[in-house]
């Protein structure tokens, strides 16, 4: 059969053809010519939704479908590796409806420019892990992204213990997980709008948890679905939480004052590390 005049096909037909190709085939096809690439980009809103996993350390990009059934890996070989990496990401953003996922790649020199570019382009993130040390570079990046954290589904912050460290949140992601969360005090928790808060190596104590639970009972923290605090300051012989010692709260069910929401509290005691773990699972009460 003679070669197929692909670009002479009607736009709707082309869109259907692109739709039935898998991720890898579509990327391969886009490299055929600029015109083919333009047509694929024009059909972006009808394309499959993909997760783009950026591995800045190994300069690899993995594109996979939401159900993980399809996957395609891209390695860049540009001499200017930064230019190559960013260029491939920009092309993927034009072709697919993308959500980005970046794990702890912050030691790569590609990390900062990549994140910066993606936030400028208002790209959505499925997962983002950042390092905050209070350094000038990290502060610059934080100032840029803290205004647009609603673009992030799941934010993981790794930070260093520094008593003066107080990052300002102008917006919040959907869920937040902070490692070395000494700085994330009661005030941060009460203003946080995330549905899931996980605080590891926290400084929150019994008094703070009592405040948080009272606030929640009174109708505060309306988005909260799950709170997990790991802290050495949660002690069984410290101040009572909702009138009870943490051990008494285990498996305890509480509800908001208006009775609209219920939560189950779970506490655990890890003898060797000497900290309590508090989990609050919240479920919406159906009248």
């Amino acid at each position: 059969m003679p070669p197929l005049p692909l670009l002479r096909l009607p736009r709707l037909v082309l869109g259907e053809v692109f739709k039935s190709l898998n991720i890898g085939e579509k990327i391969q096809l886009s490299f055929c010519s600029k015109k083919v690439s333009t047509q694929i980009n024009n059909a972006r809103f009808y394309s499959q939704k993909v997760i783009v996993v950026l591995d800045c350390l190994n300069e690899k990009i993995n594109v996979h479908s939401e159900n993980n059934k399809e996957t395609f890996e891209i390695t860049t070989f540009w001499k200017n590796h930064r230019g190559g990496f960013l260029s491939v990401i920009r092309n993927l953003l034009k072709m697919f409806q993308c959500k980005i996922s970046i794990s702890n790649n912050y030691n790569s020199d590609l990390f900062q420019p990549t994140i910066s570019m993606l936030f400028d382009l208002q790209v959505e993130f499925k997962k983002l892990t950042i390092l905050l040390t209070g350094s000038k570079d990290h502060n610059l990046l934080w100032n840029q992204i803290s205004k647009k954290l609603e673009l992030v589904d799941d934010l993981k912050i790794s930070s260093v213990p520094d008593p003066g460290f107080r990052p300002v949140f102008i917006s919040w992601p959907q869920t937040i997980n902070i490692w070395r969360s000494y700085w994330f005090n009661l005030e941060y928790v009460l203003t946080c709008t995330c549905s899931r808060i996980t605080l590891e190596l926290s400084n929150l104590g019994n008094k703070d948890l009592d405040e948080i639970l009272k606030n929640w009972k009174a109708g505060g923290l309306p988005n909260l679905k799950h709170l997990r605090v790991e802290s050495q300051r949660i002690t069984n012989n410290g101040m009572a939480i909702l009138g009870m010692a943490p051990m008494e709260l285990r498996e305890k069910e509480i509800q908001t004052d208006d009775g609209s929401k219920k939560a189950t509290i779970n506490t655990g005691y890890q003898i060797f590390e000497m900290f309590f773990q508090m989990l609050i699972y919240q479920s919406v009460h159906v009248a």
Partner: peptide, 21 residues
């Protein structure tokens, strides 16, 4: 049917299947 002509091919092989106007 058109998608099938392109399926499983790399860029070089696809260029042979389609004509670029």
């Amino acid at each position: 049917r058109i998608a099938r002509m392109l399926r499983g091919k790399n860029t070089q092989e696809m260029i042979k299947v389609i004509t670029l106007p």
